[in-house]
């Protein structure tokens, strides 16, 4: 099956399960390494790990923290197994971004230029979001040497996260897209969140996977990159450095085409969407590997068939040679 078709199917399935699985009694757990937003309501099929992390950190108490550690271990196991495969194939917000990108391509709108140098500037923002979602809840639970934080800030990142507004909307829950007038803090946070959400929508229409450059969940997942079982492999001898993979990459990873020695070209930003494999015109130059077993390798015939509508023809006759 064509890699891109398979990915669309998996993504749509994951989208339906994570947003509506609850109605069929599916609930995958509180530790999912993907932006599966609990704000969607009771019909959701699983919970984002970051929300639970923030929520429980703010409660405080050793029993609660032991629960966090348990969840964290399961989370880690899932990430070690599949790495950022979660981002590229499962994440419902990633799916929405991919749909927006398809819309852009259909409308023939120019994508915004996004250089590797620009990409680096987004790193502090990710760390800021991640730091926010850990320090503020802990601060609320244990207000040591500072004035009490408002309990309304107990889930600071969730109130800024675009998925918290857009996913409920996608699931038919428009009342979540509103300002929360409970207190001054919530008003400020939700209005910031709405701004970020609309920026993320416009951004991901103009740039493939725009939010993924800012997502703290993605950052958390990328920390497991060295030990994760999912890898992207390259046969450096076969590479002509044509930059086709770089142009296709939604995360603008240039290191893959530049690599000349190592077979392992897995980078923290890689979401395993497989666009590079699909775009590579050389046989076996790029491929996924799971625990050393390679699958979905690039092939020249597949390249010409998918992108240039050329039927290689007579495969049986040509194999005989």
């Amino acid at each position: 099956m064509k890699l891109s078709k398979l990915r669309w199917s998996v993504q749509s399935l994951a989208f339906v399960v994570l947003l509506f699985g609850g109605t069929a009694g599916i609930f995958l757990g509180f530790f999912l390494p993907t932006l599966s937003c609990p704000y969607v309501g009771y019909m959701r099929g699983g919970d984002c790990f970051l929300l639970n992390l923030q929520f429980h950190l703010a409660l405080g108490g050793w029993n609660v923290y032991a629960g966090i550690i348990k969840n964290f271990l399961i989370f880690s196991l899932l990430v070690v197994l599949a790495g950022r495969f979660w981002c590229g194939w499962i994440c419902p917000f990633g799916f929405i971004q991919d749909i927006l990108n398809t819309l852009r391509v259909t409308l023939d709108v120019k994508s915004i230029a996004f250089y590797e140098t620009v990409k680096k500037n987004f790193l502090p923002i990710k760390w800021f979001f991640l730091g926010l979602s850990i320090t503020v809840p802990v601060w609320i639970a244990y207000p040591l040497c500072a004035p009490c934080m408002l309990y309304d800030l107990s889930m600071p990142f969730c109130q800024l996260c675009p998925a918290r507004y857009i996913l409920p909307l996608a699931a038919g829950n428009p009342e979540k897209v509103s300002l929360n007038f409970k207190s001054a803090a919530t008003v400020v946070m939700t209005s910031l969140g709405l701004v970020i959400a609309s920026a993320a929508l416009v951004g991901s229409f103009l740039k493939k996977r725009f939010w993924c450059f800012l997502c703290p969940m993605g950052l958390l997942l990328s920390l497991y990159q060295k030990i994760s079982f999912m890898r992207l492999k390259k046969d450096c001898a076969k590479c002509t450095m044509c930059e086709a993979c770089y142009l296709a990459c939604p995360m603008n990873i240039g290191e893959v085409f530049r690599e000349r020695k190592n077979a392992d070209v897995t980078y923290g930003d890689c979401i395993f969407c497989g666009k590079c494999i699909d775009a590579c015109p050389e046989n076996d130059a790029l491929g996924f590997s799971f625990l050393g077993k390679t699958f979905f390798r690039s092939s020249a015939d597949a390249f010409f068939r998918n992108h240039y509508r050329i039927d290689p023809g007579r495969p049986a006759a040509r194999k005989k040679e």
Binding site: T240, M241, C242, E243, D278, A279, P281, F304, Y308
Partner: peptide, 26 residues
Amino acid sequence: LYDVAGLSEKTLDSMIEALAARYLAP
């Protein structure tokens, strides 16, 4: 004729981008 442009997205701009890459990078 060996090298070929990666035609992964079919907007006018990405096609020109792909052409630019094909005639320079490899």
